[in-house]
Simulated assay, not measured.
Amino acid sequence: MNKLNICVDIDGTITAPYTWVEDANKYFKTKITEKDVTKYEIHEVLGVSRESYLEFYQRHGEKLHLEASPRIYAKYGLDTINIMHNLYYVTARQKNMENVTRKWFIKENLPKGELFLLGSHYKVEKAKELNCDIFIEDRYENAIQLATAGFEVLLMDCRYNRMPVIPGITRVFNWQEVIMEIDRYQKEKIIKQTA
């Protein structure tokens, strides 16, 4: 079987999406809960300015990334992808977060894969460059951009991305579903090639 090129976002996709809430509440003296996180932009959820949030992230970003919990079965999913396909991590994190990102992958015993820190949420060009077959993502706007550009997207369900999906986007609720969808996609691709 031909290997697929699988691009995987990190924050909210591999990491549990609400691990930052406790630290943000302490810093901003807020009392938000996971249920309150219905928007992707954290400063909007917290009710603070973007500048205040960026200051918080600058001070605590490395700690937040290093202490993040992986989603349930993320290791299983990534190990499976790494064995069967080509694995690429494509994140909007800034380049200065590379060391802490690599440390976290080692700490959680996750497969290496190539790592691309774009410093931007725009991932279409990198997906094209990597000849991406499937992109696993949690940010709704990214999923729309990628699907509109012709990529298959698995949208990892979060409270902040529950808007209607368009063709090319499949909502998944866990890493076991991710693996099932990748298998389904690969089988369909083989059938199309042999038809």
Rank of each mutant, 00 (worst) to 15 (best):
H121D: 10
I191Y: 04
W104Y: 10
C132A: 14
N96M: 02
A143G: 03
A16W: 11
R71N: 03
R71W: 01
T80G: 01
E181M: 13
K192R: 15
M156K: 09
Y160H: 09
T33N: 13
I191L: 10
I144G: 05
N109E: 14
R159I: 09
I32C: 05
R171M: 06
F135C: 04
E51Q: 13
T80K: 12
E188M: 13
C132R: 04
F105S: 07
T38H: 01
Q94R: 15
I32W: 04
K63Y: 12
V172A: 05
E137I: 10
R162E: 08
E55H: 11
M97P: 05
E67N: 14
T194N: 12
G119S: 09
V37A: 01
T148D: 11
L64M: 10
A92D: 03
F173P: 02
G12L: 09
Y27S: 01
D133A: 03
T38Y: 05
I190S: 14
V165Y: 02
V8I: 15
K189C: 07
A68N: 12
Q145T: 03
Q193D: 10
C132E: 00
K39R: 13
N86V: 06
L117Q: 01
A16M: 10
G168E: 11
N109P: 00
D79E: 15
A74E: 12
I182Q: 07
L54D: 12
K103I: 09
W175K: 07
E177M: 07
D133Q: 07
V153F: 07
K187G: 00
W175T: 10
H65V: 13
K192D: 13
K3N: 09
N5K: 07
L115K: 06
I72R: 12
V165R: 07
F173N: 15
L46N: 01
N96F: 01
Y76P: 00
G61V: 05
H43D: 11
R59T: 12
P17I: 05
A24L: 02
A195G: 11
K126L: 05
E51W: 10
A147G: 07
S120G: 01
E177D: 04
Q145F: 04
Q193E: 14
K187C: 00
G77D: 06
N99V: 04
A92L: 01
Y88A: 09
N161A: 03
V37D: 02
D79I: 11
K63F: 03
D36L: 02
R59P: 06
R93Q: 10
K95L: 11
A149W: 02
D133P: 04
T30C: 03
T30H: 06
V90N: 13
K112H: 09
K75G: 04
